[in-house]
Design a binder for these strands. Structure first.
Length: 398
DNA sequence: GTCAATTCACATGAAAGAGACCACGGTCTAGTG
DNA sequence: CTAGACCGTGGTCTCTTTCATGTGAATTGACGA
């Protein structure tokens, strides 16, 4: 019986004509031939990088703009075109936000060295040894190396700006090669937090990527849908809707593409041959939920206990939840679950981590005579909370 | 009524410890010719 | 003689604790009008 239905599902799937013509076009990593509405930035970037073609060192460059504004796309594109022009130019791209790649100074340098082709053990060597190997690897040939550090703000937040300072000074030690940096950040205020020395050497040039507006997003989506979908699968209102939703969120092209892809997937799963508004709504819902649930799943037990305490308090209907309240409930949860109880200091950090992840909202408030604390709110919808509770239950914390 | 001092309940920072992981070099051991 | 197992040393990484310092407005209490 069960096998019968499975058979049907697979059978139907094969029979069904796919909505997608080429799904990859909608993925983040896809680089289209023509990047729309970024001519200005491409020209700027190209003119800053072009001295490399004559073997000169280019200025270090700092690029900023919100997520999904095309920074990475444009930079990668221009870099690869540049590389094609001259074999003396090598560009490397590193996303600093990737876990286990740039968590520490050691790992960052080790990863960079690996890109340059030397093999570095994941741990066990002194850091200055790694630096030495890194220098050697760079200076092997007479090359102009351009290092693109994406999400550089995450890097600095984790390990401080010393590394950047060290990196920008490498050139003085190099005999043959030259190295330049392109830092990409979506935090516009980021450079202000840097050490002035680092700031001046890192951002000799700057390029700003403004967010896309709804019309521009529409163009981008239209461009991609031509390749991604078979003709006539889109209802005419779908693209404007996706564009509008993404434009609300600081013009995030990535989100627009995600929405469209997910809407199409949902439509396909429902057996529909057309993508309509309803699918977009569902996609938006799912996009938010999935992101949060996945995030929660990756959290360690202690953090889950803290989250559980928060949900517990919210469901009891308590107003103005404070760090102290959470700590009390958390202790109970630990006792029941046989978990080690961490100090309030640590819990305070865990709470602010959740805040950064956007799972909870916190605000530091001073209540005068009655102290200073964080006021914590849970901005999640009921169904989402239920899903999170399921995750907690799976981890035996509830 | 005004104004400075006090006070609370944490926030935030810095340093340091514990326990995990890993590389490396030296030593030991068993197997081979 | 040699390959592989094993061990000690020295390094990093992550999570955590401990200790110290900071913070901002409600409250308090002294003071003067």
């Amino acid at each position: 019986m069960k096998q019968q239905t499975l058979h049907e599902i697979f059978g139907n799937y094969i029979k069904q004509q796919s909505i997608f013509k080429n799904k990859d076009v909608l993925s983040h990593s896809y680089i289209p031939d023509i990047t729309l509405h970024r001519d200005n930035q491409i020209t700027q970037l190209a003119s800053i990088l072009s001295p490399a073609l004559k073997g000169n060192k280019i200025s270090n460059l700092f690029i900023y703009g919100k997520t999904g504004s095309g920074k990475t796309l444009v930079t990668k594109y221009v870099a690869s075109e540049l590389e094609k022009q001259s074999n003396k130019i090598k560009t490397f791209y590193l996303n600093c936000k990737m876990k286990r790649v740039a968590d520490t100074e050691y790992r960052l340098i080790a990863e960079l060295s690996r890109m340059l082709g030397c093999s570095i053990p994941p741990t066990g060597l002194p850091t200055d040894e790694i630096y030495r190997k890194f220098y050697e690897a760079i200076d092997l040939e007479e090359k102009n190396i351009i290092l693109i550090l994406d999400e550089i703000d995450a890097l600095v937040k984790k390990i401080g700006d010393d590394v950047i300072y060290n990196l920008t000074r490498i050139n003085q030690e190099l005999k043959k090669a030259k190295i330049s940096f392109i830092g990409i950040s979506n935090d516009i205020t980021f450079t202000e937090t840097l050490d002035p020395r680092v700031r001046s050497s890192l951002s000799e040039e700057e390029i700003l990527f403004p967010p896309y507006n709804a019309t521009q997003l529409k163009d981008i989506l239209t461009q991609r849908t031509k390749e991604a979908f078979a003709e006539g699968t889109l209802e005419s209102t779908v693209i404007p809707k996706c564009a509008a939703l993404a434009a609300q969120e600081h013009g995030d092209a990535r989100k627009a593409l995600d929405l469209l892809r997910l809407a199409a997937e949902i439509a396909e799963r429902e057996g529909s041959t057309k993508i309509c508004l309803d699918h977009v709504d569902k996609a938006e819902d799912k996009l938010d939920t999935d992101k949060t649930v996945e995030l929660v799943k990756t959290q360690p037990k202690q953090s889950l206990a803290v989250l559980s305490a928060t949900i517990n308090l919210v469901e009891r209907g308590q107003q103005n939840i404070q760090t102290g309240d959470i700590f009390e409930v958390y202790q109970e949860i630990c006792k029941r679950g046989g978990l080690k109880i961490l100090t309030q200091r640590r819990i305070s950090d865990l709470i602010s981590e959740f805040d950064m992840l956007g799972i909870i909202n916190t605000r530091v408030i001073s209540k005068g005579r009655y102290g200073r604390t964080r006021e914590i709110r849970l901005p999640l919808s009921k169904p989402l909370i239920e899903k999170i509770k399921k995750v907690l239950a799976e981890n035996y914390i509830l």
